[in-house]
Design a protein around this nucleic acid. Structure first.
Length: 469
DNA sequence: TGAAATGTTGGGGCG
DNA sequence: ACGCCCCAACATTTC
């Protein structure tokens, strides 16, 4: 029996239940269908499209090494898949589930349509440790606070056996026609991605390499080093995870094995900070599934009438990394150059935007969507609502980061700021996070866009106005 | 995964 | 020896 494998955000061969199920039954026809129109306003942004191009091209190579191919098409998945199935005599289709509201609606229609057409359509979980509908609190409702969600997930966690990558894939009797990958025009016409290309290796091999690098060089000191943006103390797996180049289970098993080798007992292993971060990703998907309006609406409804400012100039200054606040500008420039920003710095730049500048969090979420290679609707929505204080288990609104003291705490030698803000290369360490206080501030670096103390107080007052009613 | 203001404690200098 | 003050360090409260 020939099976189409519809690749989406599971761009890997190992630990891929949809591919495995197909390969067990006979010939496999792997296919990617560009159908961004179905994703509406959350079609992939520029950085994500660059990554997707690289990742698809890596997947095509990996498939070729196993005697197979990656077919590329664009348009309505239902029509494309039915046509391809006819062309190559496939009778079944498998894929890995996604959780974005628009995609769920689309996939439901696709599954019905395929079955109406007499095809065997089957979807699998290949992206989450626990799918959103498998976890509920005592009263059967979704969790809205992280810690009880985290504990419940750990309680019911059962690590499945790894599924090895198939060593060979049977080709169909006849390969259907395919577009060349370039026809999807995922790469920008202007070459702005040089630094991204130098920073990342998209694709399954790159993902597994990065996992090994993390385990070898950063896992042991993760708890403290993960907050230091100047050093590679985080996993840097987020874009790989978003595109499914590595499964969360592969990561989980690898970390558990490393802990075991290093004499860390099971309880301590389970309690590790890195696992908690993986489970934040699960929590984000849980929230997006149960509260599908949250990409555009605050979960806490009173925030619908929060007095946001509208200031296109300030937004542009923040986006370009010209706020005059070193840690913020460093982060925004790291994002622009590499398609990624250290998580500690994401919280700081977000706090400045929504609290000190008091711009609507949706402007920030939109900018991150277009510039992050790891842009993920669940994580991005959750992260912005958390910072803004309008989400589930959110930082209270009055929790306002001071980018100067955050810089002093987490970039104590100024290395991160100096790396991304070259105008500050010669500023003394004492003033690196607040150069406007230096005896002679650098001339080519702007003064701060806001007074941190005054804007903090104004933000608190705005928050009070919500509570007063 | 906050910061700043306010309160408390205790060591040490000093008359 | 003692009380007093200062202030750093820490804890608590507030936003």
């Amino acid at each position: 029996m020939t099976t189409l494998v519809w690749f989406r955000q599971d761009l890997r061969l190992a630990d891929n239940p949809a591919l495995h199920a197909a390969a067990e039954r006979g010939p496999v026809v792997p296919v990617y269908v560009e159908s961004f129109a179905d994703e509406g306003e959350w079609a992939p942004g520029g950085a994500s499209r660059w990554w997707l191009h690289q990742s698809l091209s890596a997947l095509a190579r990996d498939l070729a090494h196993r005697g197979s191919r990656l077919l590329v098409a664009r348009g309505s998945p239902l029509e494309v898949l039915i046509a391809l199935a006819r062309e190559c005599g496939a009778t079944a289709i498998t894929w890995t589930r996604r959780y974005e509201p628009a995609v769920i609606a689309r996939d439901t229609r696709v599954k019905e349509g395929l079955r109406d057409a007499g095809l065997d359509a089957q979807s699998f979980n290949g992206a989450l440790l626990a799918e959103p509908w498998t976890i509920a609190n005592q009263s059967g409702r979704p969790f809205q606070v992280f810690t009880p969600f985290y504990k419940q997930l750990l309680r019911q966690l059962e690590v499945p056996e790894a599924i090895p990558a198939p060593t060979a894939l049977l080709p169909p009797a006849q390969w259907p026609s395919s577009l060349p990958l370039d026809a999807l025009a995922l790469l920008p016409r202007i070459d702005w991605y040089r630094e991204m290309a130098a920073t990342w290796t998209p694709g399954e091999a790159g993902a597994l390499e990065q996992l090994e690098r993390f385990v070898d060089t950063a896992l042991d000191r993760y708890r403290d080093a993960r907050d230091r943006p100047a050093i590679p103390g985080t996993s840097r797996l987020s874009p790989h995870l978003h595109f499914g180049e590595v499964s969360p289970w592969t990561i989980w098993r690898r970390i558990e094995a490393a802990h075991a080798e290093r004499g860390i007992d099971r309880a301590e292993s389970r309690a590790s900070k890195y696992f908690a971060e993986l489970i934040w990703r699960e929590f984000s998907h849980h929230l997006l599934h149960h509260f599908p309006h949250t990409p555009t609406e605050p979960l806490r409804t009173e925030f619908a009438r929060f007095p946001w400012h509208e200031d296109a100039r300030a937004l542009g200054t923040w986006q370009r990394g010209r706020t005059g606040i070193p840690l913020v500008d460093a982060g925004m420039r790291e994002l622009w150059a590499t398609g990624w920003m250290h998580n500690r710095v994401r919280m700081v730049v977000a706090s400045l935007l929504v609290k000190n500048l008091r711009l609507d969090w949706r402007h920030g979420a939109r900018w991150f969507w277009d510039t992050l290679a790891d842009a993920d609707l669940a994580n991005n929505t959750q992260g912005w609502q958390w910072t803004s204080g309008c989400g589930a288990d959110a930082a209270p609104y009055f929790r306002i980061f001071n980018p100067v003291s955050q810089g002093e705490r987490f970039d104590p030698d100024g290395a991160y700021v100096r790396r991304w803000v070259p105008e500050l290369a010669d500023v003394a360490l004492a003033h690196i996070h607040a150069p406007w206080l230096a005896p002679s501030p650098p001339r080519d670096y702007p003064p701060p866009i806001v007074d941190l103390k005054a804007s903090r107080e104004a933000a608190l007052a705005a928050y009070q106005s919500l509570r007063g009613r």
